[in-house]
């Protein structure tokens, strides 16, 4: 197997979750790369929405570095503003929300506003919801990219920015007045998670070769559902890495980024 990085594994795994003939509302960075990879492989009829206002752009002048980038509007079939594209999602035209976050709980509620539990004077302030809260509310299904660490996969998040299944009760999202069906996948470099249909709790689906299920549980504060049929995560092949490195992010803006703690 060829060598690959964490970001490459996450992008490749993200791509595998996206079906053809769907619309994905993408956040900046790895979601864009994953969706571009999907378009170039198994999902040629997958289209993207970018929140500054574009539907189905053709990304031939380069990968957008921002969801408002000029590149994200290039050859779109519909180019308006934020209201127009979020209303596409609210109206039911967006199949997936593809977002990131800082913290997640077992019901897929995601925090990306603050760290520290006091809103008016937090320990750390993040940029804020951006589009994520609206995407998680109203796109069909939510896919999230997270770093697999105990402080991030926690019993309770500090602040729910993007609504998941709330407290897990069956009607939480209905009472919340949101339209999408909720959390669908959580992607990390070591494991892929889904959600149990009955309890709406996070469930382990796939583990990266070389990792055990208990190693994954060990990186998570809450108790995971670990079914007997956990699969091995597929790894990117040479041609996938070629697409990721030489075609999609050829300038290395996202895949070669160094994470500063």
């Amino acid at each position: 197997m060829p060598q690959y990085s964490a970001f490459e594994m996450i992008s490749f795994t993200g791509s595998r979750q996206l079906e053809d003939k769907k619309i994905v509302f993408v956040g900046t960075g790895l979601p864009i790369i994953a969706a571009m990879h999907a378009q170039l492989t198994h999902a040629p009829n997958l289209y993207m929405i970018y929140e500054a206002g574009s539907l189905a752009p053709i990304l031939e002048i380069g990968m957008p570095l921002s969801v408002g980038d000029t590149r994200a509007g290039h050859k779109a079939c519909y180019l308006k503003g934020l209201c127009a594209v979020f209303e596409l999602a609210q109206r039911g035209f967006a199949d997936y929300a593809f977002i990131g976050g800082a913290q997640i709980d077992m019901y897929g509620n995601i925090g990306s506003t603050i760290e520290g539990d006091y809103y008016n004077k937090p320990d750390i302030r993040f940029p804020g919801s951006g589009g994520a809260g609206a995407m998680a509310a109203n796109c069909g299904r939510t896919i999230a990219i997270m770093a697999l660490e105990k402080k991030r996969f926690c019993e309770k998040v500090d602040f729910i920015t993007s609504v998941g299944y709330g407290d897990g009760s069956p009607d939480y999202r209905i009472k919340a007045g949101v339209m999408g069906s909720g959390p669908y996948r959580v992607i990390t470099q070591q494991a892929l998670f889904g959600f149990d249909e009955k309890t709406r709790r996070m469930k382990l689906l796939e583990v990266r070769p070389g990792f055990t299920t208990w190693q994954i549980q060990d990186l998570i504060e809450f108790e995971l559902i670990i079914p007997p049929d956990v699969k091995e995560m597929a790894e990117p092949k040479e041609e996938d890495l070629h697409l990721l490195r030489d075609v999609i992010d050829r300038e290395g803006y996202f895949l070669k980024r160094v994470i500063k703690k």
């Binding site: 934020l82 979020f86 209303e87 506003t113 302030r125």
Partner: peptide, 23 residues
Amino acid sequence: LWRYLVTNRIVETDDYTNYGMSV
């Protein structure tokens, strides 16, 4: 500077989604 202003409680904040503020 955003992080600095909020964590030091120099400004008051009110959070919405991008759709929320736009609409």
